[in-house]
Design a protein around this nucleic acid. Structure first.
Length: 907
RNA sequence: GGACGAUUAGCUCAGUUGGUUAGAGCAUCUCGCUUACACCGAGAGGGUCGAAGGUUCGAAUCCUUCAUCGUCCACCA
């Protein structure tokens, strides 16, 4: 033990030399130092991994970190993702794969711009974009994004993320910009990016289009008006948006509606609030005859559905609301310039005055609002860039093993095939349905945005000409002022991060990536778009597995939000409890796709566990001296040794399988049960008694630290350094637990060993329970007699262990024997346990207790008996089950008989 | 309106293809500073597995209906 040297404890001169670890684990002093050492080693980069770990045949394992938005700091949701990804990466790295985890951040276009705009308004600049102008405004946004990016990177490091910083990427840096431009160019050439005049979601507040996914619905109360355009118009219609009626070009009814059949096909020119309309009555199945009056005013310019109807019937489009969210000149006289709300009020009044208004009802309405800013979204026809998802195009390469180069397919088909074929697997699987449902209802994707922060649409105009290029094609050319939807660039994430469009070695080795781990809320926004981009550009899926985690909520199940003040900052938590504890609390108790509640109490309990592991190690090191990791599996000397090694094998096998199948929570629980229960509570206590355990203890500690390392990288690395490696003396390529090989499980039949150990454990527990029930002082030793025909030899052999663990002075083990006087008894695992307690025994109470126990066991015997007498059960149930039930019955009968004996002895 | 998910001890959740007298952690109660750990140890109490039917030799597990909660999608103009 004196030879123990440790580079870390050298900093702690007050520590006695013979104690290798301090009494409690203090994370603060450890994490920064360890992370810096890891990073310096270069092992986060798969190209620099030690060759003895990644043999020449090693496969790659790749994860692209979902780039956090540069809109602020990371929250616990990000921390969950980082923890899960780091577990996978560390696990696969230790298994010898060339593990690559590419970190990065997302410029997040509209989110970031809105955020900065709001900050500037707070600073007192009323209309930042107008006052500052494009260039100055963008400077502010870029500066903010820069700061946010730095914070995010430092937070990611402090979470212990073993990602390859040498490959760090940003969706708005120049390699990614090159990918965006190339993607745009190819899609334009293939005719799937087109400019067109279509109905888009328009945010009048930020004056930009929004994708369908950037629009939320908010329930509001609205007035539902029922009226006719004018006195001569024969049909009554209803709407919550009378102001759009200036743009009506038809009235639609259901083809089978007898009330209106006679009007279908006729044209009218009613005067609506002073404006002459040209209305055709059309029949369309989309109309619900039971709703309202069964007749619908069709406004092709301001409703997606009406626009589709207009297309079917060849109706003209009349726009009456402008980009400023106000009525335009096409609206009725005296309406131009009014806001939508003002116009609505005025129309209601005008209709009422004219006696046209039949009914005003208050209804609940789902109002579309902008995700950012919350302003009501208008639907307007506009010139925008679209990705056509239903248009067949010629494939540039063989695709998904289904299509050959030159064949035609649509983007929608590619997106569906990726998941349908199983090339991409979604975990948990119920999200497959959600994915397909979304794909089936997918409309063309509007990719242009009228905001400034983002990739500029790489299109230049001169006269009627158009060119795709990221730089000016020459004099007289003007670039499109719009920018691209942020998901256009992040859609390329899995391969633009590997150098695409260049044919790099990285791209060849690491794509498709293995796992995409992300929040279940962005399956459409992002996951589907990556599938689109990757299948289009490379002909292959972007990732083999999508693992979705749920939302982290507060203790009461509420979403964490700044306004509620219930946001947990991962930095604060990590400072208080240690990063390892935070990681565990975000992984154990979570199932994929399901939301989770997180409170500080839970984190504290995992902090306790990190300390437990620390102290287990401390004890083992005090016993063994540490320094060198064991080279080979030790030979077990006692039952406890065999049992523990068997339990370790089972644990290694279970944890490995769990990690392979994304059952992270279960892996953690299994590992904790082994570590705390089997190892600490039982084996270490026995080791104190039996002694001579150095080899087994070292071996098990080595394995346990490796198994825990993906979950708790810091504390395990620190212990490993100080227990086995000894700092500077380490061999090249073996200086870190991080690059040690993952433990292997030996297969062996442990049934009888587990059973024998179970008997010992049950007997000890029984004795302890008797002591507690009868309030025997812990310091006072008792006598005990164990009687068992079957287990006498086993019990005798381990009498010392049993006696020590249960604090027994004189332990008699008999194959057959009589119950001593004045004893308390119990029956466990076929062993009769007797403890003479003399005057302490209350004969009456004891008789009652035994009687109660007997009644229970007899009830059980009876139910088993009935089951076994049932001919149907015996003939239909599998033989194995029947045998099992017979064994149970025999054991229960035996126990009942023994309890009866004990009762008799009390007489 | 549609789809999906959840409902198991006071709380958070496990329960693999139906075969346990239904488990764990936290919390609670009792006892304990037994030289790794009080961020600990030992012991104990606590559940008619949301409700009602059904299938089966056997249901927490499968089916039907209902209730409550949650999420997503679509929206009726």
């Amino acid at each position: 033990m004196a030879k123990k040297t440790s580079f870390a404890s050298a900093k702690n001169p007050s520590q006695p030399a013979e104690v290798p670890l301090e009494k409690a684990y203090e994370s603060q002093g450890v994490e920064g130092r360890i992370y810096a050492a890891w990073e310096k080693s270069g092992y986060f980069n798969p190209d620099k991994l030690p060759s003895q770990l990644t043999k020449k045949t090693a496969k790659p394992f790749t994860i692209m970190m979902p780039p956090p938005n540069r809109t602020g700091i990371l929250h616990v949701g990000h921390a969950t993702g980082i923890a899960l990804q780091d577990i996978m990466i560390r696990f696969e790295r230790m298994r010898g794969k060339r593990s690559l985890w590419v970190p990065g951040t997302d410029h997040a276009a509209i989110s970031t711009q809105v955020k900065v705009e709001q900050m500037l308004i707070k600073e007192g600049i009323k209309n930042p974009r107008v006052e500052l102008g494009r260039e100055k405004f963008l400077e502010r946004v870029i500066a903010f994004a820069e700061d946010s990016g730095k914070t995010i990177v430092s937070q990611t490091r402090s979470m212990g993320a073993s990602c390859d910083w040498s490959r760090e990427a940003y969706t708005f840096d120049s390699p990614r910009n090159a990918a965006v431009v190339e993607m745009f160019r190819r899609m334009s050439e293939d005719g799937i990016i087109e400019r067109g005049n279509r109905i888009v979601n328009w945010d009048p507040q930020f004056r930009t289009t929004l994708s369908d996914d950037e629009v939320l619905t908010k329930e509001v109360k609205a007035k539902f008006l029922t009226f006719s355009y004018d006195k001569n118009f024969p049909i009554v219609i209803s709407t919550t948006r009378p102001e759009t009626k200036f743009g009506d070009t038809a009235v639609a009814v259901h083809p089978d509606d007898p009330r209106y059949r006679k009007f279908v096909g006729k044209a009218y020119e009613p005067v609506f609030c002073g404006k002459k309309l040209r209305i055709t009555v059309i029949a369309d199945k989309a109309v619900d005859p039971a709703f309202g009056t069964g007749a619908l005013g069709v406004t092709p310019a301001h409703s997606m559905i009406d626009s589709e109807m207009a297309e079917r019937h060849g109706l003209p489009t009349v726009q009456v609301i402008g980009e400023d969210g106000r009525m335009n000149e096409t609206a009725g006289p005296g309406y131009a310039g009014l806001t939508v709300a003002e116009a609505r009020e005025k129309i209601e009044k005008s209709l009422a005055d004219a006696g046209l208004l039949q009914k005003v009802e208050e209804v609940a309405q789902n109002l579309p609002v902008a995700e950012r800013g919350g302003a009501p979204v208008e639907q307007l026809p506009m010139q925008q860039w679209f990705i056509r998802v239903n248009k067949p195009f010629k494939l540039r390469q063989n695709t998904l093993g289904k299509w050959k180069k030159g064949q035609k397919a649509t983007l929608k088909q590619l997106m569906a095939e990726a998941v349908r074929s199983g090339k991409t697997d979604i975990v948990p699987e119920q999200f497959n349905k959600v994915y397909f449902h979304w794909i089936n209802n997918l409309r063309d994707w509007c990719i242009s945005r009228q905001i400034w922060f983002g990739h500029r649409v790489p299109v230049w105009y001169r006269g009627g000409e158009q060119k795709v290029s990221d730089v000016s094609p020459g004099k007289g050319w003007e670039q499109d002022p719009d920018t691209l939807d942020t998901w256009f660039s992040s859609g390329t994430w899995t391969f633009s991060t590997l150098g695409w469009p260049k044919k790099t070695p990285d791209l060849k080795e690491f794509h498709p990536t293995d796992v995409l781990e992300t929040g279940r809320d962005i399956i459409f926004f992002w996951v589907a778009r990556m599938v689109l981009m990757s299948t289009y550009a490379l002909g292959e899926v972007p990732f083999k597995t999508v693992y979705l985690h749920g939302l982290v909520r507060d203790e009461q199940g509420r979403k964490m939000s700044k306004s509620l003040g219930n946001v947990l900052d991962p930095r604060e938590l990590a400072g208080k409890y240690g990063t390892d504890a935070v990681r565990l609390s975000l992984i154990i108790g979570l199932s994929p796709g399901a939301d989770t509640k997180l409170g500080e109490e839970k984190i504290a309990s995992y902090r306790n566990f990190t300390n437990k592991l620390w102290n287990i190690s401390r004890f083992i090191l005090m016993t063994t001296g540490g320094v060198h990791a064991p080279k080979s599996r030790p030979l077990p000397k006692t039952l406890a040794d065999t049992w523990l090694l068997g339990r370790l094998d089972a644990t290694v096998a279970a944890v490995t399988k769990d990690l392979e199948t994304f059952s992270f929570s279960h892996a953690g629980e299994t590992l904790r049960d082994f570590t705390w229960g089997d190892l600490a509570d039982w084996y270490l206590e026995i080791a104190k008694i039996e002694g001579g355990k150095d080899a087994v203890l070292s071996f098990v500690l080595d394995a346990v630290l490796k198994l825990w390392h993906p979950f708790m990288p810091f504390v395990t690395e620190e212990i490993y350094q100080r227990a086995f490696i000894g700092g500077a003396k380490a061999k090249k390529g073996a200086e870190f637990l991080m690059v040690m090989p993952w433990p292997k499980a030996k297969k062996s039949d442990m049934k009888s060993v587990d059973k024998d150990f179970g008997v010992l454990r049950d007997v000890v527990t029984s004795l302890r329970s008797i002591r507690a029930t009868y309030r025997v002082e812990p310091s006072k030793k008792i006598d005990a007699t164990l009687v068992s025909a079957k287990s006498a030899a086993l019990l005798k052999k381990h009498a010392v262990v049993i006696a020590s663990l249960a604090r027994v002075e004189k332990l008699d083990v008999l194959a057959k024997g009589k119950q001593p006087e004045k004893t308390v008894g119990d029956v466990v695992s076929g062993v009769s346990v007797f403890v003479p307690l003399g005057a302490l025994v209350d004969m009456g109470a004891e008789r009652e207790r035994l009687a109660k126990e007997l009644a229970e066991i007899e009830k059980y015997v009876e139910s088993l008996g009935r089951k076994l007498e049932n001919a149907d059960f015996v003939s239909r149930a599998p033989a194995q089950v029947v045998t099992g039930e017979r064994e149970k019955l025999a054991a229960a009968k035996d126990k009942a008989a023994k309890i009866k004996e004990q009762i008799a002895a009390l007489e």
